[in-house]
């Protein structure tokens, strides 16, 4: 039986294996390249915890790191409740029909818009019309809108992954629909939802076009209030590179990129760990005497 079929099968396996390998190689290449250029700078305490310089060399990057994390937190804080609420509506309540199709169409359209459009929208609405000026909150709202479609989609997927039999079992024990959602559906979906927020966090941290007109690009002091001007890492990297006002801008750009990569990875693993831990502890309840 060892004929053409077996050989074709082997060939196909080899091709797919090679394609898979290519993705890994590309990813590894990018990571190694970025870390090789910037890791040493990134972990230098003077750079990591220092204040940036406007004109001279030797500036640090700490306010930008804080800006990025602050911005990401604010964005998730704004968008996650909306996404979960909307996802629950879409997956549990909305009847299949015109309205839900229309909502989905709107979300998909929103997801295809280039991020600069959101940036300009944020500039017009939050910065100018609301007179917030460049600040974290304006950026956070802009990014929240930008990320809503993808966050909603992934949250909805996580909720849909909850087996229907859990809902049935809960209803059969005399739970109302809302109780079932609160007590069974959301807790079961939560690890999935947490994992699904990681992707948007990565995007928030890496987004520059949507924030250059909303949060600001350069600061020297750590932002405290959401209404403070900020300079998230990605925006600052772009700014440092394009303006090149400081002599050591290359070093700053490389170090900043490496740092951004490390932070995003750190958040990714933290979220996964937290998700698993939640599943193990929170869902298993109290000790019995």
């Amino acid at each position: 039986m060892k004929g053409k079929g077996a050989r074709a099968d082997k060939a196909a396996t080899a091709v797919f294996w090679a394609l898979g390998l290519i993705t890994i190689v590309i990813l590894a290449f990018i990571i190694i390249e970025i870390l090789a250029r910037g890791l040493l700078t990134a972990i230098n305490p003077k750079f990591l915890f220092g204040k940036p310089e406007a004109m001279k060399a030797g500036g640090g990057i700490f306010p930008m790191v804080v800006s990025s994390l602050y911005l990401a937190a604010l964005t998730i804080l704004i968008s996650l409740p909306i996404a979960i609420g909307a996802a629950i509506y879409m997956s549990e309540y909305a009847k299949k029909g015109r309205l839900s199709n229309f909502i989905r169409f709107c979300l998909d359209s929103l997801a295809t818009l280039p991020s600069i459009v959101f940036g300009l929208f944020g500039l017009a609405l939050f910065v100018v019309y609301f007179r917030w000026s460049y600040c974290l909150l304006a950026g956070a709202f802009t990014l929240a809108i930008l990320n809503l479609p993808i966050l909603l989609r992934s949250t909805e997927e996580a909720i849909k992954l909850v087996p229907n039999t859990y809902r049935e079992a809960s209803m059969c024990l005399g739970a109302s629909k809302w109780t079932t959602i609160r007590q069974v559906v959301i807790p079961t979906a939560l690890p999935g939802i947490m994992t699904s927020t990681i992707l948007p966090i990565g995007r928030i941290m890496g987004e520059s076009a949507a924030i250059v007109y909303t949060t600001g690009l350069f600061i020297r002091n750590i932002p405290v209030s959401p209404f403070d001007t900020a300079a998230p890492l990605a925006g600052y990297i772009w700014y440092a590179q394009s303006e090149a006002l400081v002599p050591d801008y290359r070093q700053i750009v490389n170090g900043g990129a490496a740092l951004l990569l490390i932070i995003v990875f750190a958040i990714y693993f933290l979220a996964r760990w937290a998700g698993n831990r939640y599943q193990q502890t929170k869902l298993l309840g109290p000790k019995m005497k």
């Binding site: 859990y166 005399g174 309840g285």
Partner: peptide, 30 residues
């Protein structure tokens, strides 16, 4: 109230992804 009086066991075992204790305590807690 009806579903509290008429319970149901399904084709596939479907315990919640909770502890054994929490699974049983779910109904009474409701």
């Amino acid at each position: 109230g009806l579903r509290r009086r008429v319970g149901m066991v399904f084709q596939r075992p479907n315990p919640f992804p909770k502890s054994i204790y929490e699974n049983v305590a779910y109904g009474p807690k409701l």
